[in-house]
């Protein structure tokens, strides 16, 4: 992995794609990188596929959106399709295991890819709401760009007010993050 990373995240509204993007970009910023995050904010944001573009670099970042991503994260059937334009020959595609058939039929087996059982793990072992935090962990492990402490600090900034109300949420989120990091370890290097 170089010192520049372009990530496109796609999911259904409510899956927490924008939160993941915000936490990553915030973590990169506090770690001393140049970071830029822009949500896709069309009228379709209500009820459509939610897209987020994140760029992390040692150098000044140019345009806020890009043609091809280093990593594309697709979290729903529609998101697999919607994010296709950002997938190039070198792009790593991360997706939920439940979308395997979808991905195979669209990309075959050549594309660098990482299927993770985030949905199942979140539902069965944790809570559906931490699905996106598992994804965050996977992404951070795979990217291997930021210290874990920066990610955790950004997570606290984003969710700290909720943790304060219900301390068990903190434990749940950190468990989800850890699980994500573990899932990412088996993955492909970007």
């Amino acid at each position: 992995m170089g010192v520049s990373l372009k990530i496109a995240l796609a999911g259904e509204g409510g899956q927490g794609v924008q939160s993941v993007a915000e936490i990553i970009s915030e973590a990169a910023y506090t770690a001393g990188y140049q970071a830029l995050y822009i949500p896709n904010f069309g009228v379709e944001q209500r009820g459509g596929v939610s897209l987020a573009f994140v760029q992390i670099s040692r150098e000044q970042i140019g345009a806020p959106k890009f043609m091809l991503a280093d990593v594309v994260v697709a979290l729903s059937h529609r998101a697999v399709d919607r994010s296709r334009q950002y997938v190039g020959p070198e792009t790593l595609l991360i997706y939920d295991e439940s979308l395997r058939d979808e991905v195979r039929s669209l990309y075959g087996t050549e594309q660098k890819q990482l299927a993770i059982p985030a949905l199942v793990v979140a539902q069965q072992e944790m809570h559906p709401r931490v699905f996106n935090v598992i994804i965050l962990g996977v992404l951070m492990q795979v990217a291997d760009l930021l210290e874990r402490s920066h990610v955790e600090r950004a997570l606290e900034r984003r969710l700290g007010h909720k943790f304060a109300q219900d301390p068990s949420l903190r434990e749940l989120n950190y468990r989800a993050l850890e699980r994500g990091y573990q899932m990412g370890k088996g993955g492909v290097a970007v």
Partner: peptide, 10 residues
């Protein structure tokens, strides 16, 4: 523009 309005950056 909308990009500058909505993007997060330093």
């Amino acid at each position: 523009d909308g990009y500058q309005s909505k993007m997060r950056a330093p």
